[in-house]
Design a binder for these strands. Structure first.
Lengths: 196, 196
DNA sequence: GTCTATAAGATGATAGAC
DNA sequence: GTCTATCATCTTATAGAC
């Protein structure tokens, strides 16, 4: 039910390119002219597919969200290993981002520009963080009960720590241009919730 | 030696306003027109004080950096409590940021827009993160030796975790509009390096 | 230091032909 | 679906008067 509607070839290329550039530069630094140049078309053609820039933004945000949440397993009660696997799967898109030298999380970039975003994007960004926090909280809570994780304090607090750490690391990594920046961070996070 | 040169009254107001707006919207979403309107002057007057936008950006980044690092104590060997105090003092600007509903860290915002920044700002942002990581690493390393902190792994890895967590939390907080978002995160971080 | 005037270019967007 | 042509507006920036 969260399927993104299929797009034509040009619309697909537009969303891919726009997403890539926003993840590098920010929403406000990517123009229709940039996209037109990249795809070898005119800016007017872009408006046929996406009448306003905010339409492009919304489409790209939805696509990104689908991708980021696609590896999340439904949190049905299971054994300890199933929770550890779910945690690892949650990290798959993060590891993918970690390897990209000059990109960072689309939602993080949009969040940085929050006050300048059109309303729809603002709402989408807020919701992304809310959904992520809820999932992580349930994962950590259930996982601790099942013996998969060990940590003090409530699961929601740990969920916020983990979400923040990942987001911050992906952001800093881009400025440092170091594709290995996150290696130790992912290890450290695991050690924090799976000591010993 | 890191003193920022004194500015006139208008230049001061310009840097304050520019910093505030960038922390809310991002560098590319703040224009000379925005500043002129706020201060009740013309855009041409701004160019007298800061010929190019990148000049404004550099001045603001330096000011921000001076503020963020102003509470850092020189890391001379001391007892455990002195390291805990130094950690708390490092957090003073962070706590200040946490209270601002619609702003996030200037350097984080610039980092999100990295690829679109003028070269001077790129270099400044990279350097900020590098300096912060070096300080935190020394603080954690010395503090662990002095018995102030307890954690596994090397100090640099923990420094990266802490810097990333703070940066990510400040970013997410803005999108969530929750001035209490970071409360539990600061508690959790302390619990991670000062268990028990 | 601030203003008016002005410029060159970018930007998001529309109308209508092909 | 893509194009040409065109638009109003914004954006950074400069020259020169006050």
């Amino acid at each position: 039910m969260n399927e993104t509607k299929p797009l034509g070839k040009t619309a697909e290329a537009l969303t891919d390119t726009f997403m890539e550039l926003v993840m590098e530069r920010g929403y406000n630094a990517v123009s229709y002219a940039d996209l037109a140049k990249r795809l070898g078309i005119r800016t007017a053609s872009i408006h046929y597919h996406f009448p306003a820039k905010s339409d492009l933004g919304m489409t790209v945000l939805h696509r990104y969200q689908d991708g980021a949440f696609s590896t999340l397993e439904p949190l049905t009660p299971g054994d300890a290993q199933s929770y550890r696997d779910a945690f690892d799967n949650m990290l798959i898109p993060v590891r993918s981002l970690a390897k990209m030298q000059s990109a960072s999380c689309l939602v993080g970039v949009l969040g940085a520009e929050f006050a300048s975003l059109p309303d729809g994007l603002k709402a989408g960004v807020s919701q992304f963080f809310e959904t992520q926090q809820q999932y992580l909280t349930r994962l950590l809570s259930g996982g601790r009960d099942a013996g998969a994780f060990i940590f003090d304090g409530d699961a929601e607090a740990m969920a916020k720590v983990i979400a923040s750490t990942l987001q911050g690391a992906i952001l800093i990594k881009k400025s440092r241009g170091d594709v290995h920046y996150m290696d130790s961070i992912l290890d450290s996070l695991k050690a924090i919730i799976m000591p010993g």
